[in-house]
Design a protein around this nucleic acid. Structure first.
Ligand SMILES: [Mg+2]
Length: 230
DNA sequence: GCGACAG
DNA sequence: ATCTTGTCGC
């Protein structure tokens, strides 16, 4: 497969994007996931009103030292609008650029969006994992497709997400009294291992540390018109 | 046709 | 996601 070629989409129609997802889906590979998860990365993207570009961050977090090992940023022109189900074509290019700027290689990557819990089983986490050739986990803050039953209020509680008769992920309670996060396989990982890693990285917060830090890294760059009230 | 709908 | 301060609740 000509991965470089597929990566240079200047602009594509929604129907072309859907077709491409169906082809790329066939390239997904699954295994149990990384044996070690000493280095877990998180990525996120942001946009600003009236700006034609988007920015992305990639943060590597040490699960042993509980510290940030490395951060990388990228800025790039956005070619696609946000369309539910086609989100990765908007955000993956700038995210991939940020991840390619890292000097370390993480054991697994957490993405702010879904993996298999997607109408065509090819969400952002699948897309980014495939092109980085690294294990990835989709960790979204709300559902795109599927339903799940009630889950206990205890930290660590889970409930399968079912879509069209398939288990495509799990709702995971990472913090007591908070809404769950929605975990699904991105690339080269099992659902069980994905849930384990998300819980390992949660540490009392709703969003797992690498994802949360990647988000904060972008906010931290924002310039405020007025100093924050305090 | 209507409602749902990651970020 | 963004535009944005304070405020309410576990
Ligand atoms: Mg995001």
């Amino acid at each position: 497969m000509k991965i470089r070629e597929l990566h240079a989409w200047p602009r594509m129609s929604t129907s072309e994007a859907k077709q491409l997802q169906l082809r790329l889906r066939e390239l997904l590979v699954w295994d149990g996931g990384p044996a070690s998860c000493a280095l877990v990365a998180g990525g996120d993207g942001t946009y600003r009103v009236g700006q034609p570009t988007g920015r992305a961050s990639a943060v590597i977090w040490s699960t042993e030292e509980l510290t940030v090992v490395e951060r990388s940023f990228a800025e790039r022109e956005l070619t696609m609008p946000y369309i539910p189900g086609l989100f990765s074509f908007r955000e993956a290019p700038v995210l991939l650029e940020a991840f390619r700027g890292l000097r370390h290689t993480p054991d697994v990557v957490l993405l702010d969006g879904h993996g298999l819990a997607h109408p065509r089983r090819f969400g952002l986490a699948c897309h980014v994992g495939l092109f980085l050739d690294l294990p990835t986990i989709g960790c979204a803050k709300s559902l795109l497709v599927g339903k799940h039953g009630d889950l206990a209020s205890d930290e660590g509680a889970t409930a399968p997400i079912v879509h069209e008769g398939e288990v495509v992920g799990a709702a995971v309670r990472t913090r007591r009294g908070c809404r769950p996060v929605y975990v699904s396989q991105g690339y080269r990982i099992s659902l069980a291992r994905a849930i384990e890693i998300v819980l390992l990285c949660a540490r009392g917060r709703r969003l797992p540390e690498p994802a949360r830090l990647a988000h904060l890294a972008l906010q931290g760059e924002r310039t405020w018109s007025r100093p924050p009230a305090c």
